[in-house]
Amino acid sequence: MRIRRWLRQIEPRILAELDRPSLAWAKPWLDRHELFAFTRRPLARGLAIGLLCGLIPGPLQVAATIVLCSMLRANVVMGVATTFYTNPFTIVPLYALAFQIGSAVLPGEQVMPVFNHAAAGASGWLPALSEWVSALGWPVVIGLPVMGFWFALNGYLLFTWWWLRPAVARMRRIRSRLPRPV
């Protein structure tokens, strides 16, 4: 309950930031209420879009999230914040999971290449990671979108459930107090 109240309190502050002269060029594009509304539907859409776009490689995650949020009338703040679930600590397990999902979808047997970061040393782990990701091939190309849509759907449903949980509990309490028809 406190989180919802806090989210509703920051909405006017974010909308006030759009009045800056440096953002005047983007005001017609960003001046939609849903993009910065902290209510259930825009927040759930933003979460789903952020989970989907978080798996896009490289710096395109945030740009793709902003574009999709504006097209689908989702909360941009939630979408952009959600993309950060992919980071240097989580990207290797997520890509390994995407490989497994892609291997299950694709015909034939797929073998995951070994991530040999120890041989590369401290300075060479980033090129070793890049080489490992490129060696993953088609299973990752297929697995990432499948995993992204699965994350997005489940994130949307879980957030909606979490948001509506107090209302459903209140409705059940009210129904339990009503007299039962005989």
Results as ranks from 00 to 15, higher is better:
Met1Ala: 14
Leu7His: 12
Arg8Glu: 11
Arg8Ala: 08
Gln9Glu: 15
Ile10Pro: 00
Pro12Ile: 14
Arg13Trp: 04
Ile14Val: 14
Ala16Trp: 05
Ala16Pro: 05
Pro21Glu: 07
Pro21Met: 12
Ala24Met: 00
Trp25Ser: 15
Pro28His: 04
Pro28Ser: 13
Trp29Cys: 10
Arg32Met: 08
His33Glu: 15
Leu35Ser: 07
Phe36Ala: 10
Phe36Trp: 05
Pro42Val: 12
Pro42Lys: 09
Leu43Pro: 08
Ala44Arg: 03
Ala44Lys: 02
Leu47Ala: 15
Leu47Gln: 13
Ala48Gly: 15
Ile49Leu: 13
Ile49Trp: 01
Gly50Tyr: 09
Leu51His: 00
Gly54Glu: 04
Gln61Thr: 04
Gln61Arg: 06
Ala63Asn: 02
Ala63Ile: 07
Ala64Tyr: 01
Thr65Asn: 11
Ile66Ser: 12
Met71Phe: 15
Val76Lys: 02
Val77Trp: 13
Gly79Gln: 09
Val80Asp: 05
Thr83Asp: 04
Thr83Ser: 11
Phe84Asp: 07
Thr86Glu: 00
Phe89Thr: 05
Phe89Leu: 15
Ile91Met: 07
Ile91Ser: 01
Val92Met: 01
Leu94Ser: 03
Leu94Lys: 10
Ala96Tyr: 03
Ala96Leu: 06
Ala98Leu: 05
Phe99Thr: 05
Ile101Phe: 02
Ala104Cys: 07
Ala104Tyr: 08
Leu106Ala: 03
Pro107Arg: 03
Pro107Asn: 01
Gly108Asp: 02
Glu109Lys: 00
Glu109Val: 08
Val111Ile: 14
Val111Ser: 14
Met112Thr: 12
Pro113His: 01
Pro113Ala: 02
Val114Arg: 09
Val114Leu: 06
His117Gly: 14
His117Glu: 05
His117Arg: 09
Ala120Met: 12
Gly121Ala: 14
Ala122Asp: 15
Ser123Thr: 05
Gly124Lys: 10
Trp125Met: 11
Pro127Asp: 09
Ala128Leu: 07
Ser130Lys: 07
Glu131Thr: 00
Ala135Thr: 08
Leu136Cys: 05
Leu136Arg: 01
Leu136Phe: 01
Gly137Trp: 00
Trp138Leu: 00
Trp138Tyr: 01
Pro139Phe: 03
Val140Glu: 04
Val141His: 00
Ile142Arg: 06
Ile142Cys: 09
Gly143Thr: 04
Pro145Phe: 09
Met147Val: 07
Met147Pro: 06
Gly148Gln: 00
Gly148Asp: 00
Phe149Trp: 14
Trp150Ser: 15
Ala152Asp: 08
Ala152Gly: 11
Leu153Arg: 13
Tyr156Ser: 10
Tyr156Gly: 13
Thr160His: 12
Thr160Arg: 15
Trp162Ile: 10
Arg165Ile: 06
Pro166Leu: 09
Ala169Cys: 01
Arg170Ala: 15
Arg172Leu: 09
Ile174Leu: 15
Ile174Ser: 14
Arg177Ser: 09
Pro181Val: 08
Val182Gly: 11
Val182Ile: 12
